[in-house]
Write a protein that binds this DNA or RNA. Structure first.
Lengths: 226, 226
DNA sequence: CGCGTTATTGACTGACTGGTCACTGACCCA
DNA sequence: TGGGTCAGTGACCAGTCAGTCAATAACGCG
């Protein structure tokens, strides 16, 4: 009968690795530091992971997978758009943004690392992969929004997508550097308002302004009763 | 009489270093590769530079200094703004944007490296330093624009600055990855239009639309005679 | 040509660290 | 208790590469 393995070893190694990667980046992270933090040996690390890179990929993969799922849902919901009145649509988009940024906050340390290059030339390109993916999604959503008549007909969808994706990217970068969780609702209302003004038809802009005004007065009321 | 030193050695080392850093990033760049490319010895490298890092800093420093100078000029010109009619102001901003992006194109390889993390955890934070600086400049310009009455009074300058800086940042990231020089005028006209729509008063938006329409029909005419 | 001075060289050093593997420890069974 | 099996260990190995410095080369002068 063989010696049973320590059921928490892998988890402890992953958690320790996460902290060391976040602090030092991939290339400067030492397996020795990871194993010391996990209270295990270097050899034990290699029982669970083939290489240091593999541990990194696993940690990165689970954070990116969750974000990717949420991004995919934003796009998946567009079949419902044209059946909805503007205010409801604007609220829906806002909630999707909020979900995405909540998830980003949850994974903020790893995302900060990614956005700073991963601590390795091997991963520096991930920044642009990630941004390009978000931009492509934006472009598809904008093209669909044009068909639905939310946006001005003179828009270049590619340009508009770059600009919008860039604006949200900047917010993401700010978020991952915050010490305390900011008021995401406020951030995202502001971003949505600027977006809609840059791209929208006058009717759509008005609807957005009204939705936001209602939201803000509801927030004030909530604050007054607290 | 001492042996004279080779007057081109330092220049050749810097140029070789630039190429190797661009290709491999800082941490993966080897002094041996640099010196081989320059046709010199490893020892000669250390006659000119204290460390590999110092060579990197020097190369980076000259690119960033030029960009910083142009950014500073954008802000330095604001004293003249309120004396100018809207169309002239919009043209001036456009030319400043163009100058900045021309410079970015000139230094595109080094900037691509910076925007991907520098190939080293030591420089990953530069991405955000650079972006934060651009955002702070944007914020000051937006505050001033509010005073001059170009922008809607309900704007949050901090939010607006983040969004605008993010949009331009995205364009910069696209530019550094282009193989061939794109039509910068077109890019920047589009960006300026979206910006002004997101932030501007109706009068300012109209002025911008007119300036751009005039520019575009002038471009078409130029293209027809070519 | 020899000399003095400085430039340049590249084999070498030493620090670093991912990954290895012979050995030890932990477990259950008879 | 001894045996078999697998988990875990950490000293060691080998590869990497920035930086060093004794030796050699290059230069002008008398």
């Amino acid at each position: 009968m063989a010696r049973p393995s320590d059921p928490s070893a892998r988890t402890r190694l992953l958690e320790a690795a996460r902290h060391v990667f976040i602090e030092h980046g991939l290339d400067r992270a030492k397996v020795e530091d990871i194993t010391r933090a996990a209270g295990l040996s270097k050899g034990a690390f290699y029982l669970h992971f083939k290489t240091k890179d593999d541990a990194f990929k696993e940690i990165l993969g689970s954070a990116l997978a969750e974000l990717g799922t949420i991004l995919g849902e934003v796009e998946g919901s567009r079949a419902e758009w044209s059946a909805k009145p503007y205010p409801e649509l604007i609220e829906q988009w806002f909630y999707k943004d909020l979900r995405l940024f909540e998830c980003l906050w949850k994974h903020r340390s790893i995302m900060r690392l990614v956005l700073e290059g991963g601590g390795s030339p091997s991963y520096g390109h991930l920044i642009d992969l990630f941004a390009a993916s978000a931009q492509e999604t934006s472009e598809r959503l904008i093209r669909y929004g044009l068909e639905c008549g939310y946006y001005r007909a003179d828009l270049d969808p590619k340009q508009a997508a770059a600009f919008v994706a860039g604006g949200y990217d900047r917010l993401a970068r700010r978020l991952v550097h915050e010490r305390r969780k900011p008021n995401l609702e406020r951030w995202l209302l502001g971003a949505q308002a600027l977006c809609v003004r840059a791209l929208g038809t006058p009717e759509f802009i008005d609807a957005c302004v009204n939705v936001h005004a209602a939201r803000l007065s509801e927030s004030s009321r909530r604050r007054a009763t607290a």
